[in-house]
Design a binder for these strands. Structure first.
Lengths: 188, 188
DNA sequence: GTCTATAGGCTGATAGAC
DNA sequence: GTCTATCAGCCTATAGAC
């Protein structure tokens, strides 16, 4: 029984990982259960032995993805405030992040769908998000700056993704980075 | 014939107006043609005498909504840079804007769906968006600041809309406003 | 221009064989 | 746990009456 439980949990993590990539790329609501499962090599019938409903998948997938993003922020190798944020801006505000949503942060990809979901899901989402915000607070020095910088990051990625011209995408990323840096300098 | 054309154009504008509100609130892809038309008091059969497809509606609706947002930025009564941006921040970064997406700016509501649409639609969207950005540039003094502030605005609204706690929503809005103001002061 | 009716496809979810 | 088969509902789009 222990053995079976371990297998199931591992399988569930695989399903969350693959489904997360597809949801970030194509949207969660826009993707059918069939498509999620096909990408994992199983049929839609198997889905319900892992999740009770599509909304249940959304909740689990969001938690998993948020934990991934938080992990990346924690793995930033710098402790010095200036270096930490510089590293994070370069990683987050990159053209590669804009063009490969499947492998990027969940926030710019699915925040709009969270905004239209029920209160219970928002509460789960908020709890995880606040853990991420605490990391930014630790390095930026204030609660407010942490929120504002997070907003700038996701706003820039969403904006750049909705733009057609490649050069303009880069301008938007560079402009956002410059604004954050110029603001943080005022207290350095 | 002139008469009939005028009627049809007016009707089309009404359809765009109502459909825009619903799309901003519930999402465009998530809403069926039937629901869009029912809100306007007609059936889905009538839809195709105004638009050639659902995607055609999306394009027209985006243009219309972007023009509305641009109009509001143009109608800002202040010319002085500091007053102009102060007015815009208070209007845009308000709890009422967060909680009533149907009557708010199209950018935070539908940018994620634009990000997943085809190149042609992104080009139309980009062209209108650049007109809006020019207004911000005129008052903020630089291309880059205009983009960065726009990113901050839409990021803050999206973030606040995905949060459960009312107080935290307000904290996010206030933090974003503070970041923008502190950044613009450095060159004032 | 709008209506009703309908085609054809996709969706979330369930039942039963293995 | 996964499969196939299936249901009931919704979707976009079209056809024909008025």
């Amino acid at each position: 029984m222990r053995y079976k439980t371990g297998y199931k949990e591992q399988r569930r993590k695989e399903l969350l990982h693959i489904s997360g990539q597809i949801a970030k790329k194509n949207g969660f609501a826009a993707t059918g259960i069939d498509a999620f499962m096909k990408a994992s090599g199983v049929t839609s019938g198997a889905f319900y032995s892992h999740f009770s409903s599509k909304n249940d998948l959304f909740k689990a997938l969001l938690e998993n993805e948020l934990q991934n993003s938080i992990q990346m922020w924690q793995d930033n190798p710098f402790e010095d405030a200036e270096q930490w944020i510089e590293f994070e801006l370069n990683r987050y505000l990159s053209l590669s992040h804009v063009e490969r949503p499947a492998y990027g942060c969940v926030l710019p990809a699915l925040a709009s769908e969270v905004a239209r979901s029920d209160l219970q899901l928002k509460q789960t989402y908020q709890a995880e998000l606040m853990r991420g915000q605490q990391i930014f607070k630790h390095h930026l020095g204030s609660e407010e700056k942490a929120w504002a910088v997070l907003c700038q990051l996701i706003g820039a990625i969403i904006m750049a993704r909705s733009i057609a011209d490649e050069n303009l995408k880069q301008t938007i990323l560079t402009s956002s980075k410059a604004l954050i840096l110029s603001c943080l300098e005022t207290v350095a």
